[in-house]
């Protein structure tokens, strides 16, 4: 056992414990984390693109995006800043649906956003019913500070991977570190293995 903090009792959780990764605590709020000003993107101007490793690009307008089959993921989310939030409800389009329009053999993806944010993921983490581009939270349109009009949702990884204000995804043959990944945060970010920082 490590260093004991004399007099620290702590507050143990019970049934929900198993759903909270190591080093995290539960919140009922929805904290906001971002590195700069909130970009203001109108639905009219909104586009979402996927570019393959060969350079072919598929683009959806807001109307086209909403016309795709909609899914309602119900999931827990985990932020590297240590809060976890259980039972969040989202509405959006599965990456599997979006990737159907793209011919690719890429291994990696780089999501990029309005405002310049980027984050990298293995492409297999965007497939298989694990990732969505979502436009509603709790049945309400996604607020700008939470990434609206639309954000990526990849709940099995720390939440910085769920890029807000998403503009598109580039599919790549090589892994290209994104914004936080260049700034000391883990390239993969599995909350259950506590992959917070470089070297974890």
């Amino acid at each position: 056992m490590g260093i004991i903090s004399r007099g620290f009792g702590g507050r143990r959780r019970t049934a929900e414990d198993a759903r909270v990764p190591p080093g995290q605590y539960l919140t009922d709020g929805f904290p906001v984390l971002s590195a700069g000003p909130t970009p203001r993107v109108t639905e009219e101007d909104w586009r979402f693109s996927i570019t393959s490793e060969a350079g072919d690009t598929v683009t959806w307008t807001w109307e086209e995006f909403l016309a795709l089959p909609q899914e309602r993921p119900h999931t827990d989310i985990h932020c590297v800043t240590r809060w976890s939030k259980l039972d969040t409800e989202w509405t959006g389009v599965g990456l599997d649906t979006l990737l159907e329009s793209v011919d690719t053999a890429a291994d990696f993806a780089l999501a990029y956003s309005h405002g310049g944010y980027t984050t990298n993921l293995p492409l297999e983490d965007l497939a298989g019913g694990q990732a969505w581009v979502v436009h509603a939270f709790g049945g309400e349109p996604l607020a700008p500070e939470h990434g609206g009009p639309a954000r990526l949702l990849v709940p099995h990884l720390y939440f910085w991977k769920s890029a807000k204000w998403i503009k598109g995804v580039r599919l790549l043959d090589h892994d290209e570190p994104g914004f936080w990944e260049q700034a000391g945060y883990h390239p993969y970010g599995d909350p259950w293995r506590e992959q917070r920082y470089w070297g974890d």
């Binding site: 700069g36 909130t38 970009p39």
Partner: peptide
């Protein structure tokens, strides 16, 4: 606070790339 100030800075012509923000979590 962060939203209000960052929005004001952008409205006043500051380069968004030179505005760095940090927020409080629920803790």
């Amino acid at each position: 606070f962060v939203e209000a100030v960052a929005d004001a800075l952008v409205a006043l012509g500051h380069d968004p790339g030179r505005i760095r923000t940090e927020r409080f979590g629920a803790s």
